[in-house]
């Protein structure tokens, strides 16, 4: 089967049960998407599928064919410039251990593009699908607000 990830096509041979998350990590070598629970309970595996933030641990790889998958590795520009959300996470120290961070960033991009980032309360609610055990939540909210304004401007 073939998967479209970050603009590239990957031909992979997979078990029918393989999730998109395991396909990315174990077969394609994109380990930025993280496994925190494997049951849709933490958000660490969040990727964008056709622009929509979804959980790669509850998505079958076979069902992801013909869809455009964006992972954390696909956000920075080829010249190395970070996506505004990535930069905002650094600017606001919106992570500690960093393990939930790729999922937080992709979820945050989804949150902004869905129009759910108008207020801090909205961000808190719509970012609640991403657990951060280090509890960098206040800084995550600040980062999303910064990037929201930059994404609108850019």
């Amino acid at each position: 089967m073939t998967l479209r990830v970050n603009g590239s096509t990957h031909a992979v041979e997979l078990d029918a049960r393989t999730t998109l998350l395991d396909a990315l990590r174990e077969h394609i070598g994109l380990t930025g998407s993280k496994k925190g629970c494997d049951h849709g309970q933490c958000g660490a595996c969040t990727v964008l599928i056709d622009g929509s933030r979804e959980l790669s641990c509850l998505t079958l790889a076979v069902s992801s064919q013909q869809r455009e998958v964006t992972t954390i590795e696909g956000l920075a520009r080829p010249d190395g410039d970070l996506h505004p959300m990535q930069q905002a996470f650094i600017d606001h120290d919106a992570f500690q251990c960093g393990y939930c961070t790729p999922g937080q960033i992709l979820s945050a991009i989804g949150c902004v593009s869905e129009g759910h980032a108008d207020t801090p309360a909205g961000i808190r609610e719509y970012m609640s699908g991403n657990i951060c055990r280090c509890a960098a939540y206040p800084n995550i909210v600040a980062a999303v607000m910064q990037a929201r304004d930059q994404m609108a401007g850019g």
């Binding site: 956000l75 650094i90 960093g98």
Partner: peptide, 10 residues
């Protein structure tokens, strides 16, 4: 940078 780009290898 490593942590926001997915380059950090756990």
């Amino acid at each position: 940078r490593a942590k926001v780009t997915g380059e950090a290898r756990y």
